[in-house]
Amino acid sequence: MNPIDEKLQALNISLPEASAPAANYVSYTRTGNLVFIAGQTSVRADGTMLTGRLGEDLTLEEGQLAARLCGLRLIAQMKAACDGDLSRVVKIVKLGGFVCSLPQSSGGDIPQIINGCSNLMVEVFGEIGKHARFAVGSPSLPRDAAVEIDAIVEIRD
């Protein structure tokens, strides 16, 4: 077992299966040593979507959980891109986070919500999990998801 899988096991984290794309795109694409992972939404382990809108019916804590769910799905896509070997991840380069929110929602909460994913990356990958990112509000997301996050990851052959 590689060190990242050992870390996941120690943290009692089970990854979902890497999901297939929902439309005319790919789940991830690789160019050189960079993997661009399509946006992953806040899907729970049972396959249901965590929905809600910040400022309406989504609390900060629920938003952070939604972002963590996106992070688990991102790691599952990384694992698929690395042929099952997460020790090939060199660096989590960048995350892009979208939070479903009302226009009058506190913009200060949006970065805090995306921390649910950012914290997971550092928890699992340590120093190489630290990344650049953006966090923005959006009036709606696909399938009424609470959060959607994409990633750019550097891997080794």
Rank of each mutant, 00 (worst) to 15 (best):
P139I: 00
I4H: 00
E62H: 02
L95N: 03
F125H: 02
D144A: 07
L102C: 08
D157E: 15
V136M: 10
K7S: 07
G129D: 10
L60S: 12
D57C: 09
A76K: 01
A80M: 10
L54A: 12
K94A: 13
A38E: 15
I110Y: 09
S140W: 04
S140V: 00
K7I: 00
G32D: 15
E123W: 02
C70R: 03
D109W: 01
G47T: 12
T48Q: 14
N12E: 14
Q9W: 09
A67I: 00
V89W: 01
I110N: 10
V153P: 00
P3W: 08
K91G: 01
L11G: 13
A66S: 09
L102G: 03
G39L: 04
L95W: 04
A146K: 01
A38P: 01
S106M: 10
G39V: 05
L15C: 13
E148H: 02
A18Y: 00
K130M: 08
D46H: 07
L74C: 09
L8P: 01
E17L: 11
M1N: 04
D57Y: 03
F36G: 03
K94W: 01
Q40N: 12
C100L: 01
R44C: 10
L72D: 11
I75H: 08
Q77S: 15
A81F: 02
N33A: 15
D5W: 02
I75Y: 06
L65S: 08
L74M: 14
G71E: 11
L141F: 03
V93Q: 08
E17V: 12
D144I: 01
C82T: 15
A22Q: 12
V89F: 03
